[in-house]
Design a protein around this nucleic acid. Structure first.
Lengths: 113, 113
DNA sequence: TCCCTCTTCAACCTATCGGTTGACAACGGC
DNA sequence: GCCGTTGTCAACCGATAGGTTGAAGAGGGA
């Protein structure tokens, strides 16, 4: 779980891999098709796809000699869940702080009147 | 923007840094307090905090010789926004696919009847 | 003022990352 | 049955990440 999360975050830390994910969000594609737009070797893209695959973000279907690469969007939920947990926790803190400040304000008002 | 996103993802790829963020979500803390639970040097944690700071996830307030470390939760929204964009895009694909399959099914039904 | 605590800076070391080139395995088309 | 296309594996290379130790800067307390 923790391990998986590390891999997913690490996978998306690279701009090329984020772009691959973005393109795969609209359509499956072969390795060659995915590699075409970039000015790096096909091997480099193959490595990137392996990283995405190890993170569970992508699966490859062996369709003849071409491999169709497919985005597994559920894994993205893992990240969203993690992020949201702490974002909301931080948000609640501010709300509690706001409440405290409001209460202090009221007390101040009470003193003043 | 792209650069910032890379830094945020990379920052959260490390388990220690994710744990720091998790702890900071409930309360601000000094560098020393943050470093205490881990069995690595304070310098190592200081480095981790610098990475989080460069990613914009954290700010340090110079309170005397101690620095109070504070989580900037808004940056998490950057990630959520990126993730959700492609997750939804992928989801829509499946919905369209479902629609196509449903239509094919209907046509099949039509033929059958 | 002197010292003690907290934090960062600097240099170093090892492992991993992202890229390269070269070879090779696996299929389909002809 | 061979050839060309597609993709991966292997070895290598320079740069970066995460850790260490040692030293130094910056305040507060006695």
């Amino acid at each position: 779980m923790e391990e998986r999360l590390s891999k997913v975050f690490a996978a998306l830390a690279d701009p090329t891999r984020r772009d691959l994910v973005a393109r795969l969000a609209t359509a499956d594609a072969t390795v060659g098709e995915l590699a075409a737009p970039y000015d790096v070797s096909v091997q480099a893209i193959s490595k990137h796809l392996k990283v995405l695959e190890d993170a569970g973000l992508v699966t490859k279907a062996k369709v003849a000699q071409r491999r169709s690469v497919h985005l597994e969007a559920e894994v993205l939920d893992l990240m969203t869940a993690w992020i949201e947990r702490y974002r909301q926790r931080a948000e609640q803190r501010y709300q509690r702080l706001d409440a405290v400040l409001a209460r202090m304000n009221e007390e101040q008002e009470g003193k003043a009147s």
